[in-house]
Design a protein around this nucleic acid. Structure first.
Length: 261
DNA sequence: AGGACGCCCTGTTCGC
DNA sequence: TGCGAACAGGGCGTCC
């Protein structure tokens, strides 16, 4: 599920469970998910260290090592974190298992193996290496309007490209455009500045509310599209049957009555 | 520049 | 009920 609100939820979870404890051992169950290092290299970097703090950029979670350097986690389409006490409770599809000095364990879980784990010296190294745009919640209104306003393609495509703005994927691009009343294929560069300002405000409110709901669809505010985006789903505002369109390989769900070009 | 496509991987859902 | 196809909240390289 991991877009910005999900990864922010994982970050807070890691903060609450996994900081300031000596790392005793790491076990990389799926070495192919390591980018730029080996299971041995990862073990050497982590063993005996603690996670001192955390950051997030877009859909990437970064855990700072007290010795310097950062562990980077990306969750693909299906990843999550789990902290637990008993090795026998190790979740299915655990790809990296970290054991702390107090015996507790942190699992990086990725059923579809579409995520990845790496080490960087600084967050900037990750951002430059992946050519990521500014994080969606750190971007100011003025900069947003300037970046979005020069785009001559579809609104949804712009939100989903991490080079433009980092953190928004298929689900939340649909949600933001729904809340702003904008069609997924509307062209950002053709919009009035007032529309872009509204879009910016909706982007922030959607992401913040989703974080408050711990990115859990069942806890989203009434009026969110998210729980309804499926075949036969109804618009939570006007009751129309939702429509779908494709952008690349992803399905966009939208309300044909509330979202106009 | 922007978008479509195939591909990576694997579990679930859909359609016959 | 059974089986293969299509699809799933991501991202990369390639092609037009």
């Amino acid at each position: 599920m991991p877009e910005l609100p999900d990864v922010e939820t994982f970050r807070r979870y890691a903060n609450a469970t996994s900081l300031h404890q000596r790392i005793e051992h790491t076990r990389m169950e799926s070495p192919e998910l390591l980018k730029g290092t080996s299971p041995q290299g990862l073990g050497r970097a982590l063993k005996g260290r603690t996670f001192a703090s955390s950051r997030r950029h877009g859909k990437y979670l970064l855990l700072a090592l007290d010795s310097g350097g950062w562990l980077v986690m990306h969750f693909g389409m299906s990843g999550e974190l789990k902290y637990f006490q008993d090795r026998r409770d190790t979740p299915d599809y655990t790809r990296l298992l970290i054991r702390f000095g107090n015996g507790r364990l942190l699992a990086y879980i990725a059923p579809r193996k579409l995520g990845g784990i790496s080490l960087v010296d600084t967050p900037q190294e990750l951002i430059e290496g992946r050519d990521l745009g500014p994080d969606a919640l750190e971007l100011g209104e003025k900069e947003f309007i300037e970046l979005a306003g020069r785009h001559h393609g579809g609104a949804k495509s712009w939100f989903m490209d991490q080079k433009n703005i980092a953190g928004i994927g298929n689900i939340y691009s649909d949600e933001i455009l729904f809340q702003a009343g904008i069609h997924p294929k509307a062209v950002l560069g053709n919009m009035e500045e007032a529309d872009l300002r509204r879009l910016y405000k909706k982007m922030r409110s959607v992401l913040r509310r989703a974080i408050s709901a711990h990115a859990d669809p069942e806890r989203m505010p009434a009026g969110f599209l998210l729980p309804h985006r499926r075949q036969g789903g109804r618009c939570p505002k006007c009751g129309s049957t939702l429509a779908k369109s494709r952008t690349g390989a992803r399905t966009a769900w939208y309300c044909p009555a509330c979202q106009k070009h």
